[in-house]
Design a binder for these strands. Structure first.
Length: 419
RNA sequence: GGAGAGAUGGCUGAGCGGUUGAAAGCACCGGUCUUGAAAACCGGCAAAGGGGCAACUCUUUCCUGGGUUCGAAUCCCAGUCUCUCCGCCA
């Protein structure tokens, strides 16, 4: 959510910056709406003042007048609310502005590769895809999930289920022990207001699984990422600067409709309606966002270093970033079967964009109230890490060597092969 | 599911129709004292929005939404949430 005052004062700059985001939203009338809104506020406040004075005077002869003022106020108020809600509708659907060092561009072709790390293994046979490997092992079953549930779900079985669990534990251990994140086991359901706070609503309702609960007012959604529930921990809070930064990590299921991605990644478990992800969230002083983004991205990539999986780090261009982000690094892991890098983590700074929506603030060293900065990143997507291990650690007979750091988490199993 | 109690500033907690934006304590910020720190003492300290270059000023806000009244944190109605007891249950 943007500050209307800032927009008002730097409209041309704002327009230029928002155009970078590759979105088509009409907001040129926002200034006139704003003007009318403020005009009505002033009229209303004058009447309110008059009314207040009458009531203070306790002069009975003025009581009738006070009544008629009340009616007038109601009238003005109804108008003012209409303007205000039009403004809010526009504001709440405008994405965050990119930071200066974010490259221009409308899609992934303008992203910039920052670094490449790890050695890409040369196979002396044709590497199989993760789903071929998984189905051959009889440990990934897409048929039974189609039967019980539908498309874009999977049954992970036996040693791969163990591997999935091991990955979750391994990542949580690294982030809690080495990276100073506090482990949280949160609800997987968020209310409407929380979804609004992090920016999933109102614009991306189509992507969310809404629950049908017998309640009239409060809508509930399955979380598309733990970012929603972890970031909203500080909703409606004024924090003490001494408690910052806050760093949370959670390993949760995530649920996404993936509307609009029909036909994309239909094979295998790259793109599922339900998947596990370890999520990192930081709440920081708003001038420390960029610093924290570097730190967070390193926390995420160190998992791949430890797993000895080759990856690259990419700086997203303005048009390819998520709605709430001001700057995003993607980490992409090498997939031999596709002969390319695929996204396994996305780390974003949202600046004060989410904090404004959530009303999350802190008292700075001068005792003034400011909005916090929020960041989130995957550390990492577990399903895709599983895929990367299957493909990068495959052997010619279809067995999978267990990465060294995971062996203790796998009950000392060092190779996964079919029975 | 049945029966009660409650929701007030960053936190704890008074107030229960008229300078109450709200006592008090804690926390926080500034100062005195101290070699430094602590303690003690003095002072400051809610948020959002509007107007103004600024000093400053106005409006709104005591869970949410309605209502009564010239006037509501305080009274009435509806809702949400929390707590206690009983029942049920992983």
């Amino acid at each position: 959510m943007h500050n209307l005052k800032d927009i008002r004062n730097n409209f041309d700059e704002f327009v230029k910056s928002i155009k970078e985001r590759n979105v088509d939203i009409k907001f040129d009338n926002i200034l006139s709406l704003d003007k009318e809104n403020r005009n009505l506020i002033q009229k209303k406040e004058n009447l309110e003042k008059e009314k207040k004075e009458i009531s203070k005077s306790k002069d009975k002869s003025l009581f009738e007048k006070s009544k008629s003022i009340s009616l007038e106020i109601d009238n003005l108020n109804a108008k003012q609310i209409k303007f205000k809600s039009q403004i809010d509708d526009i504001l709440s659907s405008l994405p965050n502005l990119p930071l200066k060092d974010v490259p221009s561009g409308k899609d992934e072709s303008s992203n910039i590769e920052i670094e490449k790390k790890g050695e890409i293994k040369k196979f002396d046979f044709k590497p199989k895809s993760h789903y071929e490997l998984g189905e051959h092992l009889k440990m990934l079953d897409f048929d039974v999930s189609t039967k019980t549930t539908g498309s874009r779900f999977v049954f992970v079985k036996d040693k791969l289920a163990l591997l999935e669990r091991a990955l979750s534990n391994f990542m949580l251990d690294v982030h809690t022990k080495e990276n100073d994140y506090e482990e949280i086991s949160p609800p997987l359901i968020a209310n409407e207001n929380s979804m609004y706070g992090t920016g999933q609503l109102p614009k991306f309702e189509n992507d969310q699984f809404e629950l049908k609960i017998d309640e009239k007012n409060d809508r509930k959604f399955l979380i598309p990422t733990a970012e929603v529930i972890l970031t909203n921990i500080v909703k409606d809070k004024i924090l003490n600067i001494k408690n910052l930064p806050l760093r949370f990590v959670a390993s949760t299921s995530c649920f996404r409709k993936e509307a609009g991605s029909y036909g994309k990644d239909t094979k295998g478990m790259i793109r599922q309606h339900q998947f596990y992800k370890v999520e990192l969230v930081s709440i920081v002083e708003n001038n420390k966002c960029e610093e924290e983004l570097e730190r967070m991205t390193n926390c995420a990539s160190m998992i791949l270093d430890k797993l000895k999986l080759p990856y690259r780090k990419v700086l997203l261009c303005a048009g390819d970033m998520g709605f709430s982000a001001e700057k995003t690094y993607d980490i992409e892991v090498w997939l031999p079967s596709e002969n390319k890098y695929r996204e396994i983590s996305s780390c974003s700074s949202c600046g004060t964009f989410q904090a404004r929506r959530m009303k999350s603030r802190y008292k700075n060293s001068k005792n003034d109230t400011e909005f916090v900065g929020t960041l989130n990143g995957s550390g990492l997507a577990i399903g895709r890490t599983l895929i990367a291990i299957l493909e990068n650690y495959q052997n010619i007979d279809g067995s999978i060597t267990v990465p060294e750091v995971l062996i203790p988490y796998m009950n000392n199993l060092d190779i996964i092969k079919s029975k």
